[in-house]
Structure formats: structure tokens, C-alpha cells
Design a protein around this nucleic acid. Sequence first.
DNA 1: ATAGATACTGGGAACGTTCCCAGTTCCCAT
DNA 2: ATGGGAACTGGGAACGTTCCCAGTATCTAT
Lengths: 334, 334
Amino acid sequence: MPTIIDVAKRANVSKSTVSRVLAGEGNVSKESRDAVMKAVEELNFVKNSVASSMRTRKSKTVLLIIPDITNNFWSEVSRGAQIVLDKKGYSLMVANSDWQKDREERYLQLAMEHKVDAVMVNAPDMDMEKVSKMVDTPIVVLGERSQKLPFPIVGTDSYKAIRKALDYVWSKGHKRIGIVLSASFDSEGTKNSTKYRAYCDWMKEKNIDINEKWVINIPLSIEGGKKLFSIWRDMDEKPSVILTGNDLVAVGFTKSARDDDVVVPDDVSLVGFDDIPLVGLMSPGITTLQKPKSEIGAIAAERILEMLDGKTVPERTLLDSLLIERESVKGEKL
Amino acid sequence: MPTIIDVAKRANVSKSTVSRVLAGEGNVSKESRDAVMKAVEELNFVKNSVASSMRTRKSKTVLLIIPDITNNFWSEVSRGAQIVLDKKGYSLMVANSDWQKDREERYLQLAMEHKVDAVMVNAPDMDMEKVSKMVDTPIVVLGERSQKLPFPIVGTDSYKAIRKALDYVWSKGHKRIGIVLSASFDSEGTKNSTKYRAYCDWMKEKNIDINEKWVINIPLSIEGGKKLFSIWRDMDEKPSVILTGNDLVAVGFTKSARDDDVVVPDDVSLVGFDDIPLVGLMSPGITTLQKPKSEIGAIAAERILEMLDGKTVPERTLLDSLLIERESVKGEKL
DNA sequence: ATAGATACTGGGAACGTTCCCAGTTCCCAT
DNA sequence: ATGGGAACTGGGAACGTTCCCAGTATCTAT
């Protein structure tokens, strides 16, 4: 493998000059530049980034830690981030923790050893104090957090999203409204969650008493949705619509319902969150609040780039969701 | 940031000894070892992997290049690979080419600059001659290729999968069988594809004449499936079942069919391939040939590890698909 | 003509680790 | 007691780049 020294010899210049040409900076005469280029070509030289990062203490690499790469939400986030970083010559390493705390930590450790320039992470249950002790590079946290963090946050504004969903079902005539909460993404009791706050505020504005039985806490997964259905079925007094927390829950609910001859939306209406491709293709299509998935990744990446530039960045960037109307919410007779 | 020299000073040993302790090899007395450990702890030392790879010329990093990280198939593959590599102390970099040839090439270049230890790649249209010239590390190619390649291949055995699908629909009484081909993943004319070969062989065995109109070439996507439906609808003589190439096609077909009051499987039966989560959740559930997605990633990773160990590995590893029976194939009256 | 800026160049040191080799101590078998 | 191996140790060189600095040539303004 040829080094810049081999290139230098061949081009009859010094290694310093080669370095300057390759970096595209400093003053180099046209002849030297051409000679170097030619030598690079002839020797088939490829730069050794490892040696380079060793000296510069920059690796041009960013690590992204996510809990589940097979979830469309997170793969879209990755994609959005990679496109932005790519453009600036940064490579993205994607690490998949599978919701395991020890792996999250190990990846962070690895990131420090490998001297990545920055870290983007979603790890709802991780102690951020610890993180800030371990990591000495810029960090951006993905996903909303209610408590204050020592790092910038990029996520969706769930307060607004919930209100948007509520306003929508209200416009359809619904007044008996259930909501799914979950500790995930909040790392604190569900009753303190932004979602619940949004729900309470809105209900108070509409002068509706909250039925505590309609505030349901299940895992945000297909399984959770199935569980939600059996909870709903066994209720004496049933809500006419449920905000399901995320799309997977709505999918699981719909599937269980179908097996039980309950028809969505005729018997109960559902609103999902995220807008994963699945919910647009099933029947009935699930009305959902679309999160700007790849935009979240892209903005997080931009924050990283800004921090790397020494700029100060906004503490929290919460993006809006978009209501996608499909067939899972039926108009109630007013 | 403390270096091993700082650790050495604190532990009153030489840097060589510290290096030996950290690497866990060579002969070191218990006292020295303990002293080093203590110093590491006290100084909060983290090893600099960049310096290490500089000297050893190993980065303990593997690059995976895939065309679409948001496709469940590929994210499962990544996940499978990462789990295996992780266990052996390797990190996986996932690079998403978005089907763009220039990006595939750029990532390969980057891999060489960053001195990754090995590369796993799916790039159906890429010139493998070129790749082998660019890359001087072990490579594993993902996805079946009919032509001989200078690298080991890990993928699914589509010849067997097609036969399995054909045997199944045959057992259900179907004799008018259509099939979808596509150049993707084969990088050669569709008529040379393994799939088509399997189809022809099987049809000959059953003494059925091939109706060329029922051999259809469309993109393997939801859009392709919609197109497939309109092709099917306009046929004078229609097949009673179609092997749809992949699940997305089946999904697109079903959706279009529904809009046109055509019922799957009553009016036409479908068989998908891959088994993405979507097809198990929609209604009707699509009968499909499940590919062992994460196993493909895992095996590819194991091949990498073996090659890194200097072992020789099998040229091609083609895994079997599993028939998942759902509701999209109806029994024909015999 | 000369001072001083500007353009360009090359050599040495440094980044933090691992490898190599030589050296010291200790123990055991003769 | 002595040779020889094993256990352990430390110092220097090397990996390939970039940074720093000093040096030379060229140009411009007085």
C-alpha cells in the first residue's frame, strides 16, 4: 500500500506538499499539484484515514444509537441522518441496542474508543448524567423528554400532536375519548408525560370529565394493541374513539377486533401515531399523526454538524405531526 | 485524555506492560496486572482504538452496504449481522446506498480509507470486477447471483423457493400459474434468472405448457404490484394464481384488487416472498415464502469472521425459504 | 537597490499504540 | 554451582498522517 511518502517521491515533492494537495488547502503551485495528482493516480494511492484521525484527532464519523433498526420509524431516522452527514463528508455508524441497556452503554464506550466525533442517541431509560460523564463529544438526544437534559433534543412535539388528534375526533363528533400512554420515550411516570398533560388540558377546555379507566397504559407494540382490545371489550362504558399511542397498537387492536367481529371504525374509532407504511396499506387504513421521521434524523444531524462547528444550538427542537386521514375514525351522530 | 504512558507511570511499570495487560496476553505478574488495573480505574483511562488500529492495521470494524435500510428485509439482515459481529468485538457500520451506484462506490472507497477489516455488500448492479480491484479486504456478497463471483455469496435459494411455492399451489389444485420475474438481485436478463429456470423445469415436469403472457416482468415494489393487477385484469385468459416475486408486489396487487372489487383469493390467488411483517397483518393475510432474513445477516457475518481468521469458506450459501400459509391462496376445484 | 511581504517548499516532531528485541530475575535439573 | 529455560520487564522503533517552523524564491513598493 503506497503512502503519501511514496507519492511524494514519485512526484518529486515533499510529503508536506502532498498532504497539502490532498487536503486542498495551503499554497501549492500548479505544477506541484498536477505532479501529485498524477502520482496519486499512477500509484493508486488511497489515503489512510486512520493515520489521519490519529494526528488530527478527528474521525469524521458519527455514531447513532437506536433501540430497533427493524422499526420503520428508526430506519427512516437513520436514513435522514445519513444523507445529511454524508454531504459533509461524515460517515454514520448505526448501532442497534435492541432495547438493551448494557448494549447502549457498550456502544457509547466503543464510540469513545474509536474517537467518533459525535453521538446521536435514543435511549429512553438511560441515565443521562452517566452519559455526559462518559462522553466528551457533542451529543444529540433523539425523542422527546420532559425533564431538562444537558444535551440538545430533537423529536416530535407530542403535546401538539395529541391536541391535533383530539381536535380532529372532536370535529367528528366524538366526546368519549380514550388515550393510551406509555412510559417509553418518557422515562418517567406516565401521568407526568407530555401526552397526558395535553389530554388533561384539552379535556378541561372542553369541560369533559376525565374517565380514569379510559387512560390506558400498555406497551406500544402490536401485542399491546391486542391487549388494548381486550381491555376495551371488557369495559362497561366504552369510549367511542381511542388515541392509540402509536400505529403498532392500532394495528394490533384492529387485528384482534376483526377476529372478534368488532368492526373498526363502525364499533370503535382509532387514531394512530407515526404513520408507518403498514397502516396505509391495511384495511381499514388507520388515521394517524404522521411524524417527520427522516426529518428528525436530518435535523439531529444538522445539530451535530453545528455543534462540531462550535455553534450553539437550540436546546429542544420539537417537530409537528401531520394528520393523515384514513378510514379508522367514523363520524359520530351529533 | 490519559494515555497508556500515564497509566504506566502511575502503576510504576512500562507502557509495554500496560499494553500487555490491556490486551490480556503475554506474561505479566499479578502485581503488575493489579497495579495497571488500578491506575486505569483511577485515571479513567479509555484506550485509543485509532492509535491501535494504526499500529496493528486492524480496525475491528466491518462495513455493510445495503440498498435500503427502511426495507424490513435489509434491516433484519443488518440486525442479524450486528449481533454476530458484536460478540466477537467487531463493530458494524451500516451504509445505505439508496440504490445509487455512485454511493455504493463511495462507501467502498471510504471503507478502504477507514481501513475496515471486511465488507459485506448487496449491490446487484455493481461491477464486481471493479469491486475486487478496489477492495483488498475480505468481502461477502449478499443475495443470490447466477454468475460466478470471486467472493463468497450468502443468500436464499430461489430455485428451491420457487419449486416449493409451485408444489404448494399445485397441491391446492392450481394449474394456471403466473410468475413475476425481475432483473433486480440478478443483474442479468430475467430469462436467465434462477427463478425462471426453476419455473420452466417444474412446468416441464408437470407437462404444462408455458404461457409466455403469464411470465411477467415488473418492479418488485408496491407500485409494481398495482401494475401487475392491471395487467392481470386485462388478460383474456387469466392465471388462477400468481407467484408475485416478493411481498410488496402482493400487497400492491391486493390493494388495487380491492379498489376494483376483485377479491383475493376468491378471484385470484397470490403467493408472496420474504414474509415482511405487513403481509401477516393485512387481510387477507398473504401466503408467502419466508426468507431467513436475520440468519442471512448472521451467516454472512460468520463467513466474514472465518475469512478474517484465514479460513476458506464455501463459495455460496443459499438458505431455504419456509412456506407460511395464510389466506391468499384458495383451493381450486379439482 | 532594498526592505518587506507573499508564495511556496521541505524536514522534523508528534499523535498513542503495538511489536520487537534485549535484558533481568528466578527456578529447576543436572 | 552452573547452564538453560521460563517468566517477566522496559526501551526504542514503527505505523502514516498533519502540524509547525524555518527556509528560499519571487514580487512589490519605496
